[in-house]
Simulated assay, not measured.
Amino acid sequence: MSLAVQFSDYGTTDVLRVVDVPPPDPGPGEVRLAVRAAGVNPVDWKILSGSMRQVMPLRFPAGLGSDVAGVVDRVGEGVTAFGVGDEVLGASVTPSYAQSALATPSALVARPASVPWEVAGTLAGPGITAWETLNKLEVARGETLLVHAAAGGVGTFAVQIAVARGARVIGTASEANHARLRSFGVEPVTYGPGLVERVRALSPTGVDAVLDASGRGEIPDSIELAGGPERVLSLVAFDAADTGIQIHMTEPGAGGADALGHILALIDEGRLSVPIHRAYPLDEAATALEVSRSGHLGGKLVLLPA
């Protein structure tokens, strides 16, 4: 038996329970991981609350999390990429807020010894999303990118990757996070009324592309600054799809090994850092989710189930 965080109905963190369940058996093309770290992301508490049920319906009892790092302890039929004892990171196909989780090899990469478990467990969701969205926006060297929620989970990855690609990055964030953004090579601005004017003070002709990870109503300003909706992409403003902007969703447990390889290379080169705000044991998952919901963190949140 192994421990897992589960819930039997949508609600607040009060509905979460840590339960003893049989570890899942890997099917063909799957591996089972002894989970060492599981990233906590804002989408997790949105799923818990039911606000994502139209696009991500659940079958109860359900679990949370897909960012994972762990040790392979069982291999399904046909798997040759990894063996028992391999240390890996990536995305799981079963909930990662657990001591055991299943994953497909296409969503995993080997964990470098230089990357701590707590960092390894936070890379997949925000890292792959940042990589894919910058590709969709075709952000190129010499262009100016505006990132909303630049100090958030996806934003922290996106701004550093864009800077590494040679783009100029302007990022919206609370003032408490401005110094950290500057350390990444980002030009920070505050949220709220007057955003267009603040951005134009830095870039009078506007920006080439916008990545919205905030959902605070910045889409009209973003379209104005980008000169149209074509290169404005949101991860959260689903209600703005009729404006012509791009909407991006990443499927949990999907492939992403190539993106993770690039992200690990940037970490190794010292061009991307992943600050950890706090690590929690599995039985404090509810607390971690409440902290995630409060926002304005100084880094990633992670569960350490082992």
Rank of each mutant, 00 (worst) to 15 (best):
L137E: 05
P193L: 14
A150M: 07
T13D: 15
L102T: 00
A162Q: 04
G121W: 00
I128G: 01
G256H: 02
Q160D: 14
G166P: 11
D242A: 13
V109S: 03
D20V: 12
G171T: 12
G152K: 02
T156Y: 00
N41F: 06
E132I: 01
V232F: 08
P305F: 02
P22K: 13
F157Q: 00
D67P: 05
H277Y: 12
L137W: 07
S8F: 04
G244W: 12
G228D: 04
V159T: 10
T94G: 04
D242I: 13
N135I: 11
H248R: 15
A201K: 05
G270Y: 10
L266D: 03
F60K: 08
V31E: 01
R293H: 13
H262N: 15
G63D: 03
V88E: 01
G185L: 02
H148K: 08
S114L: 09
T12V: 06
G152N: 05
W131K: 06
I223K: 04
P275K: 12
P188T: 04
R271C: 15
P126Y: 01
A279H: 06
V163Y: 01
A110K: 10
V139L: 05
M52K: 08
A288W: 00
G194R: 09
D221W: 05
L195F: 07
P281M: 13
L181C: 04
A103E: 00
S100F: 06
A158C: 13
A176F: 15
T122N: 02
A113I: 10
G155D: 00
G127Y: 00
S234I: 07
D208G: 07
W117D: 11
P188I: 09
E218H: 15
K300A: 03
P105Y: 03
L272R: 06
V84G: 12
A120V: 05
G228T: 11
S51E: 11
L102N: 01
G192M: 13
V109E: 00
V189W: 00
A149K: 00
T156M: 09
A113T: 15
A201S: 13
V232Q: 06
A213Y: 00
G253F: 01
